[in-house]
Design a binder for these strands. Structure first.
Length: 794
RNA sequence: GGGAGUUUAGCUCAGAUGGCUAGAGCAUCUGCCUUACAAGCAGGGGGUCAUAGGUUCGAGCCCUAUAACUCCCACCA
């Protein structure tokens, strides 16, 4: 037993423990045929700037589970990753260097990206290390690494060859700010104020009123739709309407998706105002009239508004309409528009040639996959189902961006047929390498694809990326996927979870992982997400750790129910943690100070009350285990806390204190009984707490337990195994606790010190506990300062 | 408009399969320096369990409505 400092210095100890773990390779992954693998598919955070407390929450919950599974005897494969390619990283680089990707040479830009993301990745790593994460950093992957690119490109080629990925010229969701196509999952909605403008089209010389929010697209109008059931307009079907201001004629067509009661019941269809326009465009094979360019500027050949941006163009058209008495009415409305989640810009729809992964044809299969996965909490599956059921677009995976995994594709210059790189040449950047081959059409000239893959297209194969690494450890790929569990926040179900399932459905025809653990997100205050733009995060994670230590944060953030959003009341959480850590420190100090002469090998028959605390801690082990098996780390912490505070500290320690101090009064054997009980109980308790507060528990373990137990780290011990608990002993313990409680209450109510002597205590007990009480009598007399105890039968 | 979640003490939250007097921490009040801890201990006060019905011997929990808040999806004509 080593000396205990009066006060626990967390900041110092934590660094010391982290170094100890690293020096001893405590969390190193090793292949071990005697243990089952439990692999964790951790989220590779997007490298887009600073981390905030929300990350800590979600990652810490997963980390606690990793420790638990390790203690359960699994060989835990717990890697870490970084999602460091794609738009989020590009935007970070643009911000930090005050450049725009399309204004600098591609190679220069990508170099900047590597430089910047690596800087941040080091910060991330340092942060996770300082939180005491038990992942093995040798298993780390990055989505932009050569290996990841290779795996990603190969997976893409497989998809394309099997017909699950295809290239197609069609209207696509487009961000004019980022100048790239995007996918449905990257949309957010934003409420904006705008005007519903009523404009006269002319049919047979008569006015046909049409309402629109997008008058700037008048030049792009290709037809007019009415509902075939609409009595007002039935007679117009098949005729043509003249577009105001531009005076060209377009056909009037009937379609049942037109809402009769919306606006005037007549819709102008432009290329493209919204998703419905795009649907009609394809359904009726309408012509395309270009109005908006990929950069959001109106095309040169559009009269009146060429060269303006969309908003200015709209204003100008409205002005012209007014000037020509063509604006019949203009109602102010508020509506939701789709914006790009990364930049907040309104999304346009433009025709272009893009790569897609087929999802719309496999909705049933995707839903079936969802059913095979265990969702924790179960209710989260509904979100997944809802997303799958409501999908409208296939997954567009090409991005007209720079820093990402390139498409390993060249197109025949003559016939356009795509040609894929050979597997042995991967990873490849077609912009830097010629395609050597001949097209079936005879041509030998090829054009490289310049787009890069959607970031999600690479992060969605995280099981494959991990598997690639796992091969180095001799792990067979069939035993690796499905992985054990995916841990992530519920807000990315529609992206990361969904996409991962899609990919796995294709490459494995199976689920990517057996279970998924969905954590909630952290709100700044009820109902408000923490975000950089609102600057509502209090302290940065780093500041928080410097101020409070990792164990404080870990213990505090463990107080959550799985899947529920929570809001972080820094002061409250930290006060609670501080109080707890202090209590555990002091109680351990007390316990171990009485174990200096403890002989664990000596067999001693335990006194009833000592048996009780052993039973009680065992019962707690089982309860906590029940919760942890369902990923409920908060509820598990709660039952452990209850045991620790109420049973161990308030009752048991107070009851055996005197026996530990005074063997001359209580007898040497009885003191040994207490030593056995308290040694086992504290060790068991520390094991349970070790998943929450790895530093402090390790520190205490090293001081007082290591020499006896033998293992070099508490984190290499197994979760305590317990048999069925003895209900009778637990009942007896409750009675003892009541006796002590009554004595305390009596003193408090009479404003007496706890040391005040009492003449006698009367205990009513069932006969079966009479003997137990007799054996506990000396403890009770010492604990309550009673002079004698009398018993009556209940 | 569709779906999910939430609603329990002043605050933050626990309360499997319906069953003692509905719990914890914080806050508040009272008392106590007790050889681990005053960063502590002991105790008290405080709740019509969102509302209204219903099922049941019995409802915080189940059913039906309603309300408020949150999230997801849809809604640009």
């Amino acid at each position: 037993m080593q000396e205990f400092e009066k006060h626990y210095n967390g900041s110092l100890v934590e660094k010391e423990m982290q170094k100890y773990w690293e020096d001893n390779g405590v969390y190193k992954f090793k292949k071990d045929p005697s243990k089952k693998i439990f692999s964790i598919d951790t989220p590779p955070p997007t490298v887009n700037g600073k981390l905030h407390i929300g990350h800590i929450f979600s990652y810490t919950q997963a980390e606690i589970m990793a420790r638990y599974k390790r203690m359960q005897g699994f060989n835990v494969y717990y890697p870490f990753g970084f999602d460091d390619n794609g738009l989020p990283s590009e935007r970070l680089v643009e911000r930090e260097n005050n450049i725009k990707a399309f204004n600098v040479p591609r190679s220069v830009f990508c170099e900047k990206c590597i430089e910047t993301t690596q800087k941040y990745e080091q910060e991330f790593k340092d942060l996770w290390k300082s939180l005491g994460f038990s992942c093995d950093w040798d298993l780390c992957y990055s989505t932009v690494s050569k290996t990841s690119q290779k795996v990603s490109q190969k997976a893409f080629i497989d998809l394309a060859k099997n017909g699950h990925a295809y290239i197609k010229e069609s209207p696509v969701l487009w961000c004019t700010e980022c100048q790239t196509s995007i996918a449905q999952a990257e949309l957010e909605t934003k409420e904006i104020d705008t005007y519903f403008n009523y404009i006269p089209f002319i049919v047979d010389g008569k006015v046909l009123e049409i309402a629109t929010t997008r008058p700037e697209l008048l030049y792009g109008v290709v037809c007019v739709f009415v509902n075939p059931e609409d009595e007002r307009y039935k007679n117009l079907i098949g005729k043509t309407a003249k577009v105001p201001l531009y005076n060209f004629e377009v056909p009037i067509i009937a379609d049942e998706s037109v809402a009769i009661d919306k606006g005037t019941g007549v819709v102008m269809c432009a290329t493209f105002g919204d998703a419905t326009d795009a649907e009609w465009y394809q359904k009726y094979n309408l012509p395309y009239k270009k109005v908006i360019l990929p950069n959001g500027i109106i095309a040169d050949d559009v009269p009146y508004i060429a060269g303006k941006n969309v908003f200015d163009a709209r204003m100008e058209i409205v002005r012209l309409l007014k000037e020509n008495n063509l604006l019949l009415k203009s109602d102010k409305i508020t509506h939701m528009v789709a914006v790009h989640e990364r930049c907040g810009t309104s999304v346009e729809i433009l025709p272009s040639k893009q790569w897609y992964i087929d999802v719309l044809n496999h909705k049933d299969e995707l839903l079936a996959m969802g059913n095979k996965i265990k969702w924790n909490p179960a209710s989260m599956q509904t979100r997944y189902n809802l997303w799958v059921e409501n999908l409208k677009w296939d997954w567009c995976i090409s991005r007209q961006r720079y820093f990402g995994v390139p498409f390993p594709v060249w197109y025949c210059k003559k016939c356009g047929k795509p040609h894929f790189a050979k597997e042995e040449d991967l990873p490849v950047n077609p912009l830097e390498k010629e395609y050597n081959g001949v097209c079936e059409c005879g041509s030998k000239e090829f054009v490289p694809e310049s787009a890069v893959l959607d970031t999600w297209a690479t992060s969605s194969i995280s099981p494959l990326l991990n598997q690639e690494k796992a091969k180095e450890y001799g792990l067979d790929s069939d035993e690796f996927i499905p992985m054990g569990v995916r841990t992530q926040a519920h807000e990315i179900i529609r992206t990361w979870a969904f996409y991962t399932i899609v990919r796995s459905m294709y490459y494995k025809k199976d689920i990517p992982w057996k279970e998924i653990m969905l954590s909630g997100i952290v709100l700044a205050k009820p109902g408000e997400k923490i975000s950089k733009s609102k600057s509502n995060a209090t302290l940065s994670p780093k500041e928080l750790i410097d101020k409070c230590t990792a164990d404080y944060i870990r213990y505090g953030t463990a107080n959550v129910k799985l899947g529920l959003d929570t809001f972080f009341d820094e002061q409250n959480v930290m006060e609670t943690s501080k109080r707890f850590i202090n209590k555990l420190w002091n109680s351990s100090k007390f316990v171990l100070s009485h174990l200096f002469d403890f002989n664990p090998n000596e067999k001693v028959e335990l006194l009833p009350i000592d048996k009780w605390i052993v039973e009680k801690v065992n019962k707690t082990v089982k309860e906590a285990q029940g919760y942890l098996d369902n990923y409920e780390i908060g509820l598990a912490r709660k039952v452990i806390d209850e045991f620790f505070w109420a049973d161990l500290c308030d009752d048991y320690i107070e009851i055996v204190k005197d026996r530990l101090y005074k063997p001359e009064v209580h007898g040497e054997q009885n003191r040994k009984s207490a030593q056995h009980a308290i040694f086992y109980t504290l060790l068991t308790l520390l094991k349970m707490y070790s998943i929450y507060i790895p530093h402090l528990t390790e520190y205490i373990y090293l001081k007082g337990f290591k020499d006896i137990v033998g293992e070099k780290s508490i984190h290499l011990l197994s979760w305590p195994k317990v048999e069925n608990t003895d209900a009778e002993l637990l009942e007896f313990g409750k009675l003892v606790s009541d006796v002590v409680g009554d004595a305390r209450r009596y003193k408090t109510e009479n404003n007496l010190s706890m040391k005040t002597e009492m003449e006698k205590i009367e205990i009513k007990t069932p006969n079966k506990f009479m003997e137990y009480f007799k054996q506990t009598e000396k403890d009770l007399i010492a604990c309550t300062s009673a002079q004698k105890i009398v018993y009556t039968e209940k």
